[in-house]
Design a protein around this nucleic acid. Structure first.
Lengths: 343, 343
DNA sequence: ATTATATTTTTACGCGCGTATATATTTTGA
DNA sequence: TCAAAATATATACGCGCGTAAAAATATAAT
C-alpha cells in the first residue's frame, strides 16, 4: 500500500490511470466495466487505500443499493436480534444496510425515515413503533420509497406486512396451559404501544372461550418501554393483593414475564411445573434472555428466520420489478411452543 | 403549512424572500443573523416544511456540530444505556449526536470511524471494543478528529480517557464479600475481549492478597459477546464438576453473573445470603437487568452519569479550545456497592 | 484487413449546500 | 441628519461524486 494520500475519486483515477467516469461506473457495479479494466482498477485498489465517499455518492444517484432498516428500539435485545437477522439478508443480496433505531419515539421514527430519504434508498424495511407511530407521515414516506413493514403492522401502510400469527401462537400456548393445568390469566399493559399486544389480547380471549373457560385479563398501568420494570412492579402488586384467580399467568410478552418472574421470586412464590410450585408463568416471543431466567421461561418463539427472510425477499422483489404491489400482501408466520421450566 | 413542495435551500430562499447565503448562515447558527431576519426565516419555517439536507450540509463545511458516539455493542443494554446518557449531554450542548454500534466487530468499528469522518465531526466519543480493536487505525483517526475514549481504554490513544476505577470497585466488593462470608472465587473469561476484565482480574488478586486470602480464579473458555450463554454453560460445568472451593462467586461482569445465576438455579442451588442458601453470587456493572434476576444481583454500579458527563465535557473543552490536550488525561470514577439479594 | 460493436475517454453539468468577496442595504450612534 | 458600522445580497466557486453525450479507442466478427 502506497503512502500517497488519495482524497477523492479524481486522485484515484489519476493513480490508476483510468478515467473518473469509468471508476464511478465500477463502484456502482463492478461488472459493468470490461474485465481487463476491472482488474486494473482492483489492482490499483490494492495499492491505494481508497473508497468513495458514501454520502457524496448518494447525492446525485438515481437509485442506490442502500436499504434502510428501522426498528422501534435498539436497546431491546429482541429487536436487536431481528435487526441483525434482516441485516444479513440485505448484505447477502448485495445491498447496503443502514440500521436505525427509533428509541420508542415516534418523532425519532419520522426523523429516521427523513434521514433515510436523503440516502435515496432502494427500499426500506420498517418495524414501526406501533400505535404511537405517525401513520400519516409514514404512509407519505411509503409513497416515495418502496417499504415493507414487519413485526408490527399499520393498516394499509407499506407494500406488504410480514409478521407473526398472534392468533395461532397465543392459541397454541393457551391450549397448552389449559391442557396441563389451570387456565391462564392474561397479564398485559392496559394501553400497550404495540399493536401485536392488542391482537394477543383478543386471541387470548377467543382461545379461552373456545376452550370453554372464562378469560381473565390483568391489565396493568405503565408507559414506555421499560417492560421488565412494569412486569416487576405490577406483578408484585398483583401478587401482594392476591388478585390472581388462577395459578397460571400468561404474559403478553417475555419482557413483562421476566419482570413478573422476578416479582414472584421476591414474594417467595416458586414458579414452575411440579406439585411444589405455586405458580406457572409463560411469555411470548422467545426473547434472547428467556433462556436465562429462573426458572427458564416457557414461551412461544417467533420464527425470526422466516420473518426476516420473507421481509427481505419481498422488498427485493419489489425493487427488482420496479412496480408497486397491486395488492398489499400480508404474511403471518406461526409460532412454536418453547417448553422450558416456568410452565 | 403550505403544500408547495420545497426541495432545497434555493426554493426556501425564494419563498422566504431571503438570500440563500443568509439562510445557510442561519442554519449554521441561528444567532449569527440579525434578529429581524431570524424572525422572518422562522416564520417561513412554520409555513413551509423545510430542513437542510444533512449530508450535503456536511460536505463542504469546515467544522460541523456533529459529534460521533461509537459503542462496542448496540444490543447490550449496558452500552445502550451509556449511549443514551452520553447522547443527552451532546444534545444539551447544542451538538448533533450520531450514534453507531460496532457489533463487537473491530472492522465495523473502523468502518464506523470512517463513516463518521465523512460527516466532518467536531469530535468523537469512542467506547472501543477493547483488546481486539485496531489500535493503530483508531490512533490514526484520533490524529484527524478530536476523540475522547470512554468505558474501555487503549493506551495513549485519544485525547483523554474516562472510565471507572476497577481497582477501587473490585476492592470494594471483594472486601464486602470477605467481611460477610467466605472469600470469593473470581469467575471470568480466560481471554476476555474487554481490557476492563483484565484490570478486574488483577484487582481481584490484589484485593484478596491484601486481605490475606488466596485468590481463586475460575477462567472459562468462550468467545464473542454472548456472555449470558458463557456464564450459563461454564457455570453449569463448574457447579457440576464441583470446581468451587468456596460458596461465594464474584463474576467479572453482570452478564456473566446472569448466566451463572441461571446455572445455579438449574442445579437446585439456592443463591443468596441466608443460612438456607448454598451460594453467593455477585457481579459488576449494575447492568439494567441485574435488578430483575432471581435473586436480584448484588453488584457494583458504574457511575454512568459521571462518566458520560465528564466524557462529554472533556470533548467540548477540546473542541472549544481548538487545541489538543498537552497531556493525555485519565479520569477514573469510583463504583458504588449495590447490595441486593444474591450476596 | 476491414467493418461493426462494445467500451472508454473527454467534456460538461448537476446534486444540495458551504463559503468567500465585492456590493448594496440597513441599522446605529453622535 | 449623516457618516460609520453591521448586516444582507449577488455572484461565483468549491465539496465529492453521478451522469449524459459526443468523440476516441479497443475488441469482436466477418
Amino acid at each position: 500500500m502506497s503512502d500517497f494520500k488519495i482524497k477523492n475519486m479524481d486522485d484515484f483515477a489519476s493513480v490508476s490511470g483510468i478515467s473518473r467516469p469509468t471508476i464511478s461506473k465500477y463502484f456502482n457495479d463492478a461488472d459493468s466495466v470490461r474485465k481487463s479494466t476491472r482488474e486494473r482498477i482492483e489492482k490499483a485498489l490494492e495499492r491505494y487505500d481508497y473508497q468513495p465517499n458514501f454520502y457524496a455518492m448518494n447525492q446525485n444517484r438515481r437509485l442506490t443499493k442502500n436499504v434502510g432498516i428501522v426498528i422501534p428500539y435498539m436497546a431491546d435485545p429482541h429487536f436487536a436480534e431481528i435487526a441483525r437477522n434482516v441485516e444479513n439478508h440485505v448484505i447477502e443480496a448485495g445491498y447496503r444496510p443502514v440500521v436505525l433505531g427509533s428509541q420508542g419515539n415516534p418523532e425519532q421514527e419520522i426523523e429516521n425515515l427523513n434521514n433515510l430519504r436523503l440516502l435515496k434508498p432502494a427500499g426500506v424495511l420498517l418495524a414501526p413503533i406501533g400505535r404511537m407511530s405517525d401513520a400519516r407521515r409514514i404512509a407519505d414516506f411509503c409513497k416515495d420509497v418502496p417499504t415493507v413493514l414487519f413485526d408490527a403492522n399499520i393498516e394499509d401502510v407499506g407494500e406488504a406486512f410480514i409478521g407473526m400469527n398472534n392468533n395461532q401462537s397465543i392459541g397454541l400456548i393457551v391450549e397448552y396451559l389449559c391442557r396441563t393445568g389451570e387456565p391462564p390469566a392474561f397479564f398485559e399493559m392496559l394501553t400497550p404501544s404495540n399493536p401485536n399486544a392488542l391482537k394477543r389480547r383478543n386471541a387470548y380471549v377467543n382461545s379461552m372461550e373456545r376452550l370453554g373457560h372464562t378469560p381473565h385479563l390483568i391489565q396493568v398501568e405503565g408507559e414506555g418501554w421499560d417492560f421488565e420494570e412494569i412486569g416487576f412492579r405490577e406483578g408484585s402488586r398483583v401478587i401482594a393483593d392476591r388478585m390472581l384467580s388462577t395459578d397460571t399467568v400468561l404474559c403478553s410478552n417475555d419482557r413483562l414475564a421476566i419482570g413478573f418472574l422476578s416479582a414472584a421470586y421476591q414474594h417467595g412464590l416458586r414458579v414452575g411445573l411440579g406439585p411444589s410450585c405455586a405458580l406457572r408463568v409463560a411469555g411470548h416471543d422467545d426473547h434472547p434472555f428467556s433462556r436465562y431466567t429462573c426458572p427458564t421461561l416457557t414461551t412461544v418463539s417467533q420464527d425470526y428466520a422466516a420473518i426476516s427472510a420473507r421481509s427481505a425477499e419481498t422488498l427485493f422483489t419489489l425493487i427488482d420489478t420496479e412496480q408497486r404491489a397491486s395488492s398489499r400482501e400480508v404474511t403471518l408466520y406461526d409460532g412454536k411452543l418453547v417448553m422450558r421450566g416456568s410452565a
